[in-house]
Amino acid sequence: MSRRFAHLVVIAAVFGLVSLAFARVNYAWNWAGVWEYRAKFLQGWLTTVGLSLAALVVSTLIGGIAAFCLQSKNPLVEAVGRVYVELIRGTPLLVQLLIGFYVIASAIGLENRYLCGVLVLSLFSGAYMAEIFRGGLAAIPATQRDAARAIGLSPWQSLRLVILPQAVRLVLPAVAGQFVSLVKDSSLLSVIAISELTLNAQEVNSFTYSTLESYLPLAAGYLLLTLPLSALSRWLESRFRYEA
């Protein structure tokens, strides 16, 4: 059985089982009511795409900086990185969003809730990225740094030409997983009234009282983003592979 065919079989089986469950509960579908609001779904989805892309870039930057803090020999810099990572990873994103928007953003006069949402989401995801990056850098054997120094590379050249190209390959699968999480975590931005996909689905639900018809497209909307991310990651992994 080919891999692709096997995937199709499993998908069909899952779909069949779920359909069976729906058939048993005799759910009264109301797709027509929800279809009226298709433009709202599209607008929400596009907002989610935009927010996710922005947070993806910013969280990678934050994660990179924090990873360097974590492995710094300066105890103060290391402490900044460590406290950031543990504080963010140890508390719910929901709480971070509420405090970030209603307390911190208000205090510093940041009124754009979209900008605030992207920043909080990036800080949240960046903490996970930091640990992924730190692990990737630590996994490069010390002998590679020695070899880089021995041929006369500067620390920056050594990082750019020797360490990072190897570390990127090591962290790719974990980073792709984190990106997928980030896309889904963006749904929580609805709590600070950012008009992304989840908030729009909730609104459609309250207009039409058609819960499943509102939330099934929501799930599909996220899959539409996360599946290509996974595919991209697998393709990159095969491109960066160099071990026999």
Partner: peptide, 25 residues
């Protein structure tokens, strides 16, 4: 300098390993 092992950069071909210090250093 040549070490006991793991001298070469695994992400580069043999010839690129030779070329790297010539170009960048």
């Amino acid at each position: 300098t040549v070490f006991q092992a793991y001298n070469l950069f695994p992400h580069l071909s043999a010839i690129d390993n030779l070329v790297l210090p010539l170009v960048h250093v």
